[in-house]
Nucleic acid binder design. Structure first.
Lengths: 331, 331
DNA sequence: GTGAAAGCGCTAACAA
DNA sequence: TTGTTAGCGCTTTCAC
């Protein structure tokens, strides 16, 4: 005996209550033409019944879903959190729901999440890609429009990407360090940040500094991996005088590892971090950083993916050197 | 620019390819009974066509959506980011998509987001509530099952909530401070953290310390609001000897404000923060904190909301005092 | 074990 | 201007 069989209020209920056909209700509610009288009736009935059109029905019929999918490696990394925030801001303004997934920087998981987005008929995706171009085959075959954020994917140069100006940022950082007299500078990068690695190499070369492959260390997008990379670097290479961290988690790890090894920043080693975060200022010493507009990045990516217009080109956003106290002149 | 009218592969296509009826395909794919021979045929066809069942169709038919909605004030606040991470971890393990929204700690926006979740037929929601009980009327009327996180909502005591043990945490903090000789301790709270405020009052009273209303300051869940609150407090009340920050953003603001006002921590003022974050250790001095299991909170909330079983009770998770260097004995 | 058919809630032709 | 109707892709009786 089901007394309160929670049935959802449907368009049919509204139609009956307003004494019109369902098509009329649909039209009125989506701003179509209708006589003032009927419009009034329908609106009143809808309000009275607290009617909310089912996105399920609509999307099935239209064979598309409005929402946008968002794939980031780790929402716990403030950079991705800010990026996500930008996406949310733009999406909410456009009234689009956002479906989020954490890839853990794992191509396999990424593939799963892409599959899940396809199942949900999400047709727009913003992703900080972890895997290579192949992961994205199913996505394109399914016809969804994707925009990459933070970094492009090799082999998918046709897909628009919203990125920071890594080359310029790296160049600025390396020049700053070189100006301070550093020659042996290491680079802590996240896997996949090849743009930055390339920028680093270029900048070093341009200044006539040696690029030792051993001084370019890669980590995965997790705290543990970052720490291991930083500690390993600092421990084994006592000859380096400066380290450049490719992201805030790498920077955090570097500060921690340095402290653990009793290295003083910036006396024993100078440190500069890509990405500015609130705690950089609270840190001791305050960290010198290359800031990048994370939230903007997300916002722009959302704009791009929302703009139906095909053939949109990617966007490169500027970075900025913010000198604080973690770099010193090399004696 | 799609050249071929990308038609999605449907169950019908698979049925034709496998030379069976659609019902059979459905059955096989959802683990129903079928003869080994047909099962084989269907699976092969599905794989060959790279078939993915449409969640839209399924959900519409079933009149429910699997996904879970997640509403947080600000994903940029690492506490909420960790909470969200917990939710994502659990949801992904269960294969459920997560729809996320940022309420900005604004009841109105929260109401909008709830409405949007209803439209999407999401039937499970985890929320860090901003508004009062009334906001949630439509949600319950629509029959969705919700779990609150971080704090309960007054007037909705029947809704399960996953929270930190605020009373115990506050008590521990206050006792620690009192043991150090502090009597004039201020509390920086976020609006809605009434549990913590209550815990603070109780703890102070229990130790025979005076509770000055003026020393309990509330901020909204934004960096600006937090900073304003902290700066105002520190500026106007030069007689206080310790401040307890109700969350990491409040703590961050307090450190910043103190620095701005040339107050030395812990010499001039002791500081203790609710919620442990990676930078607390990097800060100078390292911050003494009451840690709370944010990611766990999210995970547990997801478990609760996923467990169909109604009448689940809420969960209270333990907190822990982690002494670092931001509190000193009062001379 | 298998298939035909009836919808889930909605929108878009097409009629009236 | 309005209503009728045919599906969108799927699951689920209900016959066979």
């Amino acid at each position: 005996m089901r007394m309160s069989e929670q049935r959802r209020t449907t368009i049919k209920d509204v139609a009956e209550a307003a004494e019109v056909g369902v098509a009329t209700v649909s039209r009125v509610l989506s701003g179509g033409s209708a006589s003032p009288a009927t419009r009034e009736k329908v609106l009143a009935a809808a309000a009275r019944l607290d009617y909310r059109p089912s996105a399920l029905g609509r999307n099935l019929r239209r064979r598309r879903t409005g929402g946008i999918g968002l794939l980031v490696p780790d929402i716990t990394d403030t950079f991705y959190a800010r990026l996500a925030d930008g996406v949310l801001t733009c999406a909410q303004a456009a009234g689009e729901p956002v479906m989020i997934g954490a890839t853990r920087d794992d191509p396999e998981r990424e593939a799963e999440l892409i599959g899940s987005l396809i199942e949900e008929s999400v047709e727009r995706v913003i992703a900080v890609p972890s895997g290579d171009g192949e992961m994205w085959g199913p996505a394109f075959r399914a016809g969804l429009s994707v925009v990459f954020a933070e970094r492009p994917v090799r082999g998918r140069e046709d897909v628009p990407a919203v990125v920071a100006d890594d080359r310029s940022g790296m160049r600025t950082a390396v020049e700053y360090l070189a100006g301070l007299g550093h020659r042996r500078v290491a680079f802590l990068a996240r896997h996949g940040q090849e743009q930055r690695v390339r920028g680093f190499r270029e900048a070093m070369a341009a200044l006539g500094l040696p690029v030792e492959e051993e001084l370019i260390v890669r980590a995965r997008a997790t705290r543990d991996s970052a720490y291991a990379a930083a500690a390993g670097l600092l421990q084994h290479r006592t000859d380096l005088t400066a380290v450049l961290a490719g992201g805030n988690m790498l920077g955090e790890a570097a500060v921690l590892a340095a402290r653990e090894l009793d290295l003083r920043v910036p006396r024993d080693v100078s440190l500069i971090m890509f990405d500015d975060v609130p705690w950089a200022e609270l840190c001791s010493p305050p960290l010198t950083v290359i800031s990048q507009p994370a939230q903007d990045m997300g916002y722009r990516a959302a704009e791009l993916v929302l703009r139906e217009g095909r053939r949109t080109r990617g966007v490169t956003l500027p970075t900025e050197l913010i000198v604080r106290g973690s770099c010193a002149a090399r004696r």
